[in-house]
Amino acid sequence: MSGWLIALRAIVGREFLRFIHQRERFLSALVRPLVWLLIFAAGFRAALGLSIIPPYQTYITYETYIVPGLCAMILLFNGMQSSLSLVYDREMGSMRLLLTSPLPRWWLLFCRLLGASAISVLQVYAFLAIAALFDITMPLWGYVAVLPGLFLGGLMLGALGLVLSSLVRQLENFAGVMNFVIFPMFFLSSALYPLWKMAESSELLYGICALNPFTHVVELIRFLLYLQFNLGALLWVVGSTVVFGLLAHWGYDPARGLMKRKV
């Protein structure tokens, strides 16, 4: 067990050291949601009126509505960014060396996901602190209640990133794959508008949004911020995390994935 904990500390510590040395990564993670919150929301406020829907008990501003979606955006982009570094590690050989460890492969991948998720959560709280400076606040205890939802969402989106990184052979191709996944997941979700508005426009798009795992990450965060529990969203996120985790475990099988591609 001590070997497992040593591996956990080493991998998570390496993720934090990399994050500390890449300050622009922290800034870029905050710039994207802040642009949406302070600029785009001002333009969309009049066009996208919101009715009273759970978990809200009264009418809210559009800026307040999109905060959970922007928190999930940070988790999504950071999960993809972490996977990009994984592709780099694979090309440099460090990932291949890690997989030769006697520890189980699932534990090594989980340690990597845990480190990336912890960094994502810190970025989300930094964003929420900045939003509070602009008088966009949530219930005080909601900031505590949302913590497990943020970690679970970070694990799910990080596992998705692992799946993508196991499929991409070259670092140059990963940016295109990221954009192909990130933007459809973000815009076909409830991050920027409630699903009932999408249903008014197109039943097909509504069905896609309802099946999008990112939608359920957003809703899980939204309900927890307001001290409410969304069982459906939780089951979707947990199920998606398990599926993506199994696919990542299969994709990083040295006998079938990474080493085979190196031949």
Rank of each mutant, 00 (worst) to 15 (best):
I182G: 04
L204E: 00
F187M: 11
G115D: 01
R25C: 10
L97Y: 12
I53R: 15
V177H: 03
G149W: 02
S2M: 13
V35S: 11
A175I: 14
L246W: 05
Y206F: 13
D253K: 02
V12A: 05
F16R: 11
V35H: 11
L86G: 04
V217D: 01
L8D: 04
V12N: 04
A116T: 06
I20K: 12
Q170A: 15
E219K: 07
F186D: 08
R14Q: 09
I221M: 09
I136H: 04
R23G: 12
V181W: 02
S202T: 00
Q123A: 08
S120C: 07
L224R: 04
A42T: 11
S189L: 06
E200Q: 15
S166R: 01
M259E: 15
I60G: 06
E24N: 15
L103I: 05
F223M: 13
R169P: 07
A145F: 10
G69F: 03
V177S: 03
Y193W: 12
L147E: 10
R169K: 14
L97P: 09
Q170K: 15
W36D: 05
L211M: 11
Y143G: 02
F244N: 01
L227Q: 06
A7G: 05
L150S: 05
T215L: 07
F26M: 14
L225P: 02
R25I: 10
I208S: 04
V87Y: 03
